[in-house]
């Protein structure tokens, strides 16, 4: 290991001696200074998770959240210099974190929060003009095989729990007032769609979310409809078209 790797590894561990060869400019103890630096790095990463997962933190309380986040930071140090993406595997960590197992909806709630950030920072793309889509109506057989490309900022969430309601309740000034009305065991799905600089979260049918996921993975129009649970197709399409979410299509040769 190079000195640099050695330094980085010790920085991201809970213990470990100060890497050799460090000197303070004024001759003070480098071990103490290194400990301060290490603590700041850890705390900044926990703060980053708290920024991305505010509702998850609100559900757990700050103390529990930060203790869990500290373990995550140790297990999954950053792999990218982009701090906004840090914690994309946090929902999976939450799912497998035994002390949080009493809140089975928590991992999906965290997924919703990460997808929100991903939608916010995703690339721009222009919507396909409606006239181009209308042109597809001329040939119903070709339409069935068309493959739509969707906007990079589009995200979906599907959960067995009412995580969308939970998230929305936390956007109000006084979440406690509406939390009691949520039946957590009612599954929900949502579409995250960026309009200008704002990410909107729209509740949709689970089938519509499946349909959109299939389109995103490259399925043809007819196959995507077939493989989803029943849903209102024209509603789902209207939502996508209105949100400028269809950016391109290809016809089968």
């Amino acid at each position: 290991m190079s000195d640099h790797d050695d330094f980085a590894a010790t920085l991201l561990s809970d213990t470990g001696d100060c890497p050799p060869g460090l000197r303070a400019w004024n001759g003070s103890d480098p071990a103490q200074r290194f400990a301060v630096y290490r603590n700041n790095v850890t705390v900044s990463l926990i703060d980053a998770l708290a920024d991305t997962y505010p509702v998850t933190q609100a559900m757990l309380g700050e103390e529990f959240f930060r203790a869990m986040a500290r373990l995550y930071v140790r297990a999954e140090p950053p792999r990218s210099p982009v701090l906004a993406w840090y914690g994309d595997s946090f929902p999976d960590f939450v799912q497998g974190f035994p002390p949080a197992s009493g809140l089975p909806y928590l991992a999906d709630l965290a997924r919703l929060e990460m997808r929100y950030v991903q939608a916010y920072h995703a690339a721009d793309a222009s919507a396909l003009p409606m006239a181009d889509l209308a042109g597809l109506l001329a040939d119903a057989n070709a339409l069935a095989h068309v493959r739509f490309s969707l906007h990079p900022a589009l995200e979906t969430v599907r959960s067995r729990y009412a995580v969308v309601s939970l998230w929305i309740a936390h956007q109000g000034q006084t979440p406690a007032n509406s939390l009691g009305e949520i039946n957590l065991d009612l599954g929900e799905a949502a579409l995250l769609i960026r309009q200008g600089l704002e990410v909107e979260i729209v509740r949709i049918e689970a089938g519509a979310a499946q349909f959109i996921d299939c389109l995103r993975s490259g399925a043809s129009f007819a196959d995507a409809v077939h493989s989803a649970a029943p849903f209102d197709l024209s509603n789902a399409l209207a939502l996508l078209i209105r949100g400028g979410a269809i950016t391109h299509f290809t016809l089968q040769e």
Binding site: F221, A229, N235, A238, R242
Partner: peptide, 30 residues
């Protein structure tokens, strides 16, 4: 599963969606 989907129903749904989407947005953001 929507096994009964026909090519015609896909076209009808798209056509209805285009008609709805042409109406100005009144979603909550606005």
């Amino acid at each position: 599963m929507n096994k009964a989907v026909t090519t015609t129903s896909l076209a009808l749904a798209l056509s209805a969606a285009l008609a709805v989407a042409a109406i100005p947005m009144t979603a909550h953001a606005a």
